[in-house]
Design a protein around this nucleic acid. Sequence first.
DNA 1: TACTACTATATAGTATCACGAGGTAGTTGT
DNA 2: ACAACTACCTCGTGATACTATATAGTAGTA
Lengths: 110, 110
Amino acid sequence: MIALVNLTEMLKGVLEGCVLEIISRKETYGYEITRHLNDLGFTEVVDGTVYTILVRLEKNKLVEITKKPSDKGPPRKFFMLNDAGREELRIFWEKWEFIDSKINELRERK
Amino acid sequence: MIALVNLTEMLKGVLEGCVLEIISRKETYGYEITRHLNDLGFTEVVDGTVYTILVRLEKNKLVEITKKPSDKGPPRKFFMLNDAGREELRIFWEKWEFIDSKINELRERK
DNA sequence: TACTACTATATAGTATCACGAGGTAGTTGT
DNA sequence: ACAACTACCTCGTGATACTATATAGTAGTA
């Protein structure tokens, strides 16, 4: 797989959806989410970006937060989606499907 | 098809790619491009947005421009991709494929 | 002790982009 | 005169990802 750089603009709106999806799978925390995204292939996503998103999710009341001690460093802030968060995630996938289908339609219409 | 609103953030970077793709198909102009996008399903995209993109493409030297008279109104500015524009379009699709595959991977990994 | 590395959170400032709102102008028809 | 449609242009705004930097805990090691 070639290394793709500067995906920034195309990640607008998408990255938040990814974070919502990751949180929906299991209660997790910022550092782990960053690693998860890096492993997925978004190697240029850094922790600062993820924390920005997490702060936004909290501000928009889409998550419940639990602080738990870590044996490897400072305490972790674990995130879980609440009902509003799950609804937001559903809407994200709806939007994604829409754009995905339209883009592919544009591409394939010769 | 349900009407999806507020796709703004998820269109960042994507809309410019769509405009590049549309121009690559045939020499066309701003007003027609807007109509094309609306017909595709991006009903909320307005001409102001498209002109913003076209100005950017010109500034970045990705297009060649020809002014031609119209029988329906003011002269039209027709756009064609140059070599740099075609390369930019190629990169756009490369990025799109990457993100598309990663998003679907994230979604399907249970 | 001092340092390196890894884990972990936080935030102020920046750049980029789509968009809203308004303007200008040409043609046709009433 | 007015409306409707075609066609272009631009300033300001808001949302977002990113950069850079700071703080702090743990473990190993020189």
